[in-house]
């Protein structure tokens, strides 16, 4: 058994989302259940073994089989949202009492609710 890092892409800007991850061994026994931290998990897996990974984040699901060899200590899986939701958003800020008057400088601070 060796330390393996499984990394997830598509967890949003700054990896703002978490994913719940379940890993099964070749006997369909659960050997890991947990949540990502900084878009990854770390666990011990055996070489030359096949595992099944089931990960869910929001409505996005990863369901794959993967093989662990002795040459790699990191495996990467991608949620599909990375390709469709991370878009450039334009913010316009004007004076509420002078219609259309742009605010010359300042900051808008945002935090994700859901």
């Amino acid at each position: 058994m060796n330390n393996i890092v499984i990394k997830f892409k598509g967890l949003g800007y700054g990896d703002i989302f978490q994913a719940t991850v379940v890993i099964y061994d070749s006997n369909n026994c659960i050997i890991y259940r947990g949540c990502t931290h900084n878009a990854q998990i770390s666990l011990k897996l055996g070489f030359d073994c096949v595992y099944k990974i089931y990960a869910i984040s929001g409505f996005e699901v990863i369901k794959e089989t993967f093989y662990v060899d002795k040459f790699h200590s990191k495996y990467i899986f991608s949620f599909p949202r990375v390709t469709i939701q991370d878009v450039l958003i334009t913010f316009l800020l004007t004076d509420a009492h002078y219609d259309g008057l742009p605010i010359e400088r300042g900051d808008i601070i945002y935090g994700k609710d859901s």
Binding site: L88, F91, E104
Partner: peptide
């Protein structure tokens, strides 16, 4: 925000 406009990548 500069001159009324800013941009950021968001999901």
């Amino acid at each position: 925000i500069l001159n009324g406009t800013g941009a950021e990548r968001l999901i």
